[in-house]
């Protein structure tokens, strides 16, 4: 089943490539350079290591995957097609971010929601703190200093520490 799917995918890719027929590297008839390959590999993660981008991964397996990217580029596949190939064969972990679908949306939505809630709390806390403190203890600093008489404050400090 998986093989048939992969085969169908390949055929589709070939057809697509034939239809589009103007991918970046094939345009000038030059074989893809190492930089072209790294450009794509940079966006992918090594499918078997932990948290190692494919363009810098030093394992033999990764070297072969980079060769595969080179082959695909020379066959005229685009970056997104190659990425798609890697996702279908090795799972979403090869992407440098979770794909934006299904449960993965949580990855993107939870932090802003929590931060907004935090900001809300801060605003509320600031409002509450603005209310005068009832029966403030005598030792607490009480009067506000005019903020701009900087020199006067500093002088006082200096006198005290002499």
């Amino acid at each position: 089943m998986k093989h048939t799917l992969r085969f169908t995918f390949f055929v589709l890719l070939l057809v697509l490539a034939g239809l589009l027929a103007n991918p970046v590297s094939a345009q000038d008839g030059q074989p893809p350079t190492d930089d072209d390959v790294n450009q794509v590999a940079k966006e992918l993660y090594c499918p078997v290591c932990e948290n190692v981008p494919l363009d810098v991964c030093a394992t033999q397996a990764c070297a072969q995957w980079r060769d595969l990217i080179r082959l695909k580029l020379s066959q005229g596949e685009t970056e997104s097609q190659i990425k798609q190939y890697f996702v279908e064969n090795y799972g979403a972990r090869v992407l440098n971010e979770p794909p934006r679908e299904g449960l993965n949306w949580l990855a993107y939505l939870v932090p802003p929601v929590i931060i907004l809630i935090g900001a809300g709390f801060l605003v509320r806390a600031l409002r509450m703190m603005k209310k005068p403190v009832v029966a403030a203890p005598v030792k607490g600093p009480s009067v506000e200093a005019p903020a701009d008489d900087y020199v006067a404050r500093l002088e006082e400090e200096v006198k005290k520490q002499k």
Partner: peptide, 16 residues
């Protein structure tokens, strides 16, 4: 969390 609940492994990398 993703692995635990969906079995899908994902990577959260620098762009995020």
């Amino acid at each position: 969390i993703s692995e635990l609940f969906t079995g899908q492994k994902v990577t959260v990398g620098p762009p995020f």
